[in-house]
Amino acid sequence: MATGGRRGAAAAPLLVAVAALLLGAAGHLYPGEVCPGMDIRNNLTRLHELENCSVIEGHLQILLMFKTRPEDFRDLSFPKLIMITDYLLLFRVYGLESLKDLFPNLTVIRGSRLFFNYALVIFEMVHLKELGLYNLMNITRGSVRIEKNNELCYLATIDWSRILDSVEDNYIVLNKDDNEECGDICPGTAKGKTNCPATVINGQFVERCWTHSHCQKVCPTICKSHGCTAEGLCCHSECLGNCSQPDDPTKCVACRNFYLDGRCVETCPPPYYHFQDWRCVNFSFCQDLHHKCKNSRRQGCHQYVIHNNKCIPECPSGYTMNSSNLLCTPCLGPCPKVCHLLEGEKTIDSVTSAQELRGCTVINGSLIINIRGGNNLAAELEANLGLIEEISGYLKIRRSYALVSLSFFRKLRLIRGETLEIGNYSFYALDNQNLRQLWDWSKHNLTITQGKLFFHYNPKLCLSEIHKMEEVSGTKGRQERNDIALKTNGDQASCENELLKFSYIRTSFDKI
């Protein structure tokens, strides 16, 4: 039985969820670079991206490699990797027998973001014989899940209580170790020597080791999670996991709180800001991140802002960003909400898709409305799209047979046209069989910064309504002859009103 693990408890099935942008060198404390989270699957090609990484700022997932063999891993080693800020997950990587050479110096898994409450997941690794993470000293947050690894031993010899604050939620089941077939031998045991430290858990006094050649490092209890030197002297209180010299914040392997210019500090002093819960960055760093993602459509890219001495992905609820200094300031009234469309555009074809934009005031991208039916549609669209004030790209209304009016965009005031449909149009209306009105132009103002209007096959939309939009939106004169079809717009509506004058002759039985 794995020490510190839980057996036999019912657990939810383990679901495996399925960018080499360097964020800056980590400095003297770390020998390499800070790398983003990685999802490495199918083959070993991307694994080489770990070569210079000291910190993975995010998670590391290595999974679904069915053609790899043990010899493929023999020359692979990433000794610079010290810390993973989120979680480490391995799933069905064939041929991998140990992690001792792959990650010989991995010391800390912070667990800032977890995989279903777990910071370390080893699942269905069919050839893994031992973990071998002999320098792993601290899992700051989260638990361990090690399950269905039929060859995995050296679990009962690990004292997880020396690595985690609590072992109650560890789930370590259905491994070879369960069948008591392992016969784990710690260093020196074969020669009758006791080389590794022994600890007591559940009444068992057991030597602690990761492999037959690597003991588990056990520091004096007084050192807590700070770690200790090879001689057993406690590291500085700002260290986490390990250090090369005692009581020196510049000799830590990793930091308990924050890293700044080669030393570990309790908090980031001005003019620095907390970033990702582990390091200090200056304003320029946060500003660069903001600008890199301002026009990016890459998933996970955030326009970072500053709030409460932190550089964070977005302002919290009730705050909006001051564009001059990136500071989050309290909103006066309802907060603006910028919604970034991942692929640059979004099609609204149902109430469900409209709900995804609920509360958005600025759309960074283009909207395509293609709704053919739905219950209580006008009210639903207004509830979900009615706060949109600005669209950076274009607005396209296409084959939306259920629409009679666009009044559900009740606050839309600006279409920038930074991206144009077919390279020309910022407003595009095609084949809307029941569209009769755009907006009530006596109450609604709309500016279209650039781009043209396109109207074709809107049989109940009168040309007068379209011409009014040209005047109000500032697009009059931009359109070419064929942009607004004269014969297919309003051709099934009563669009022309003329005053009919009647004269009559009164007659009676005795007068003409």
Score class of each variant (00 low, 15 high):
28 H>C: 11
28 H>Y: 03
29 L>E: 13
31 P>L: 06
32 G>K: 04
36 P>S: 13
38 M>K: 07
41 R>P: 00
41 R>I: 14
42 N>S: 08
43 N>C: 01
43 N>P: 02
44 L>V: 13
47 L>M: 06
47 L>P: 03
53 C>M: 01
53 C>G: 00
58 G>M: 00
59 H>I: 03
60 L>M: 11
61 Q>L: 08
61 Q>I: 14
69 R>L: 05
70 P>W: 06
70 P>V: 14
74 R>K: 13
75 D>W: 13
75 D>K: 12
78 F>E: 00
80 K>T: 10
80 K>V: 10
82 I>N: 08
83 M>F: 04
83 M>T: 04
85 T>E: 06
86 D>N: 05
87 Y>E: 00
89 L>R: 01
94 Y>P: 07
96 L>I: 12
97 E>W: 13
97 E>I: 11
98 S>N: 07
99 L>V: 11
101 D>K: 03
101 D>E: 12
102 L>P: 01
103 F>G: 00
104 P>V: 01
104 P>F: 01
105 N>V: 04
106 L>G: 00
107 T>V: 08
107 T>K: 08
108 V>T: 14
114 L>S: 06
116 F>S: 09
117 N>P: 06
118 Y>Q: 07
118 Y>N: 04
118 Y>S: 07
120 L>D: 00
121 V>D: 00
124 E>L: 02
124 E>W: 03
124 E>N: 07
126 V>T: 02
127 H>N: 04
128 L>C: 04
130 E>A: 10
134 Y>M: 14
134 Y>S: 09
139 I>G: 00
139 I>T: 01
140 T>Y: 07
142 G>R: 01
142 G>P: 00
144 V>N: 02
144 V>R: 01
145 R>L: 12
146 I>R: 01
147 E>M: 14
148 K>W: 09
149 N>E: 00
154 Y>P: 04
155 L>F: 06
158 I>S: 04
159 D>H: 15
159 D>C: 02
160 W>G: 01
161 S>M: 10
163 I>K: 02
164 L>H: 08
165 D>E: 14
168 E>A: 14
169 D>L: 07
170 N>C: 09
170 N>Y: 06
173 V>P: 10
175 N>W: 09
176 K>T: 14
176 K>E: 13
177 D>F: 12
178 D>T: 11
178 D>I: 05
182 C>G: 02
184 D>L: 08
185 I>M: 11
185 I>W: 15
187 P>G: 11
187 P>S: 10
188 G>I: 14
189 T>Y: 03
189 T>R: 08
189 T>D: 11
190 A>I: 06
193 K>C: 11
195 N>Y: 07
195 N>A: 13
195 N>F: 04
196 C>V: 12
196 C>F: 14
197 P>Q: 14
198 A>R: 13
199 T>N: 06
200 V>S: 14
200 V>P: 13
202 N>F: 04
202 N>E: 07
202 N>V: 05
203 G>K: 13
203 G>H: 05
204 Q>D: 14
205 F>R: 06
206 V>Q: 15
208 R>Q: 15
210 W>K: 05
211 T>F: 05
213 S>W: 04
215 C>K: 07
215 C>Y: 11
216 Q>C: 02
216 Q>H: 10
216 Q>P: 02
217 K>F: 14
217 K>T: 14
220 P>R: 06
221 T>R: 07
222 I>G: 10
222 I>W: 14
223 C>Q: 01
223 C>H: 03
224 K>W: 04
224 K>T: 10
224 K>Q: 12
226 H>E: 08
228 C>D: 05
228 C>E: 01
230 A>M: 15
230 A>Q: 15
233 L>N: 14
234 C>W: 00
234 C>D: 00
235 C>T: 01
236 H>E: 10
239 C>Q: 01
243 C>P: 00
244 S>H: 10
245 Q>T: 07
247 D>I: 15
249 P>R: 02
250 T>M: 09
252 C>M: 03
253 V>M: 05
255 C>H: 00
257 N>Y: 06
257 N>R: 05
258 F>R: 05
258 F>K: 15
259 Y>I: 12
261 D>G: 03
262 G>C: 03
263 R>Y: 01
264 C>F: 01
265 V>E: 02
265 V>K: 02
271 P>A: 11
272 Y>K: 08
273 Y>D: 01
275 F>C: 02
276 Q>H: 06
278 W>C: 02
278 W>H: 09
279 R>E: 07
279 R>W: 06
279 R>C: 07
280 C>R: 00
284 S>I: 05
284 S>P: 04
285 F>S: 03
285 F>D: 04
286 C>D: 05
286 C>V: 08
289 L>S: 10
295 N>Q: 09
295 N>C: 10
296 S>E: 04
296 S>G: 13
296 S>D: 15
297 R>Y: 04
299 Q>C: 09
300 G>N: 11
300 G>E: 08
300 G>T: 12
302 H>G: 15
303 Q>H: 13
305 V>T: 06
306 I>G: 07
307 H>S: 09
308 N>S: 09
308 N>D: 07
311 C>V: 06
314 E>T: 15
315 C>A: 03
315 C>Y: 02
316 P>N: 04
319 Y>V: 02
322 N>F: 14
333 G>Q: 15
335 C>I: 02
335 C>G: 03
335 C>K: 01
335 C>R: 02
335 C>Y: 07
